[in-house]
C-alpha cells in the first residue's frame, strides 16, 4: 500500500494501466512485425519446413527480376507478367500513380474552389462528393465492373466520342489499368475535395478583402493568394494520395483478379507481395518485396514533401 500512497507512483501506475494494451499491441504487431519482416527478408521459409538463412539472395533475385523486366520492357513486353511479375507490378503502379494522383488532386481542388463560392446546397454537394469515400472499395469495384462491361452503362455515354466503338474496358490490356484508375479517381477525389474545402474555409478573410481593395481580379486572387496559402494542404493531399496509390490493392484484386487480369495489365506490387506470400508460400521473398515497397513509399513521399516545402518558401 505504501507504493500506492505515493503521488508519483499512483500517476505512473495509472499511466501504465491505461496505455499497456494499446502500447503492447502496437509494439508487437507494429514494431516487432516490421523488424521481423526485415529479418525474414534474409531467409527462405514456407512456415512448414525449417527456416533457411539465405543472406542477400532474396534481394539478389529481386534485382535480377527487375533487371530482366527492364530488358523485357523494350524487347518483349508480353512476357513481363510471366517472367518478371514484380517489375510489371512496379511499372503498372507507377503509371497508375502518375495518372491518379495529379488528376484527383486537380479535380478535388477545382471542385472545392467552386463549392467554396457562396451558393445554396453546398452541403448536398459535399455529401454527394464524399459518399464514394465512405463506401467499401470492393463494393465500388464490383459495381463498376458491371458499369464497365462492353455493353454497359459507361460505354453508352462514351460511344458518341468513339464513333460507336465500344471499348472492352476490363478485357483489353490497353484499357484495364485506365479503368482501374478511373474508379480510383472517382472514389477518392471527392474525399480530398472536402479536405480542400475545409482548408479553404480556414483561410483568413482579411487577406481577400485587402486584395479586393488593392484591385486584384478573382483570377489573380486565386493564383497569388488562394493557391499559395493552400500549399500545405496541397502537400498533404498529394502525399496522402501518393501513399494510397502506391499501395493500391483492393481495386486490382477485384477488377483484374489476383493474377492481374489480361496480360497482367492490372498487376500491382501489392498483388505480387500477396501472391508471393500467400499463394507461392515464399514468405522470405515476399518480405524482401515489402521492404522494397516501404523504401519506395518512404523515399517518394519524402521527396515530394521536400519539394513542396521548397515551393512554399519561394
Amino acid at each position: 500500500m505504501a507504493i500506492l500512497a505515493s503521488k508519483k507512483n499512483i500517476e505512473r501506475l495509472t499511466f501504465i494501466l491505461l496505455i499497456i494494451y494499446p502500447f503492447t499491441l502496437n509494439a508487437f504487431f507494429g514494431y516487432f512485425s516490421a523488424v521481423f519482416s526485415f529479418w525474414l527478408s534474409f531467409y527462405s521459409w514456407d512456415i512448414l519446413s525449417p527456416m533457411k538463412f539465405v543472406g542477400l539472395s532474396n534481394y539478389y533475385a529481386l534485382f535480377q527480376e527487375l533487371w530482366r523486366g527492364l530488358n523485357l520492357l523494350f524487347s518483349d513486353p508480353n512476357l513481363l507478367q510471366f517472367r518478371a511479375p514484380f517489375f510489371n507490378g512496379l511499372k503498372n503502379i507507377l503509371v497508375y500513380t502518375a495518372i491518379v494522383v495529379p488528376t484527383q488532386t486537380f479535380l478535388a481542388l477545382m471542385l472545392a474552389l467552386m463549392g467554396n463560392q457562396k451558393i445554396r446546397g453546398s452541403q448536398f454537394f459535399k455529401v454527394a462528393y464524399f459518399l464514394p469515400a465512405t463506401t467499401c472499395s470492393v463494393i465500388i469495384s464490383l459495381i463498376f465492373m458491371w458499369l464497365f462491361e462492353k455493353d454497359g452503362f459507361i460505354n453508352f455515354f462514351i460511344i458518341p466520342f468513339t464513333g460507336g466503338y465500344r471499348i472492352n474496358w476490363l478485357n483489353d490490356p490497353t484499357y484495364l489499368l485506365t479503368a482501374i484508375s478511373l474508379v480510383a479517381i472517382w472514389g477518392t477525389s471527392g474525399n480530398f475535395s472536402v479536405t480542400f474545402l475545409s482548408g479553404l474555409q480556414t483561410l483568413p478573410k482579411e487577406v481577400y478583402e485587402a486584395a479586393k481593395i488593392d484591385g486584384a481580379s478573382s483570377l489573380n486572387r486565386l493564383i497569388h493568394i488562394t493557391i499559395p496559402l493552400l500549399k500545405p494542404i496541397i502537400a498533404y493531399v498529394v502525399i496522402m494520395g501518393l501513399i494510397g496509390a502506391l499501395q493500391m490493392f483492393d481495386l486490382s484484386y477485384v477488377m483484374a483478379g489476383s493474377s492481374g487480369g489480361v496480360g497482367g495489365a492490372g498487376y500491382t506490387i501489392t498483388l505480387d507481395i500477396y501472391n508471393t506470400a500467400f499463394l507461392q508460400l515464399r514468405y522470405g521473398y515476399a518480405a524482401a518485396k515489402s521492404v522494397i515497397l516501404f523504401l519506395l513509399i518512404f523515399s517518394l513521399s519524402y521527396y515530394v514533401q521536400n519539394k513542396l516545402r521548397y515551393y512554399r518558401h519561394e
Binding site: S33, S37, L40, Q247, A287, V291, I297
Partner: peptide
C-alpha cells in the same frame, strides 16, 4: 511519455503490407 507517444505515432508511416506477412505468421 512524449517519446513513447511519438514512437507509437511513427508507426503510421509503416505500410500495412510490411507487417502483414509477419502478423499472418504469428
Amino acid at each position: 511519455k512524449d517519446l513513447i507517444f511519438n514512437t507509437l505515432l511513427a508507426l503510421l508511416m509503416i505500410p500495412p503490407f510490411v507487417t502483414l506477412i509477419p502478423n499472418f505468421i504469428i
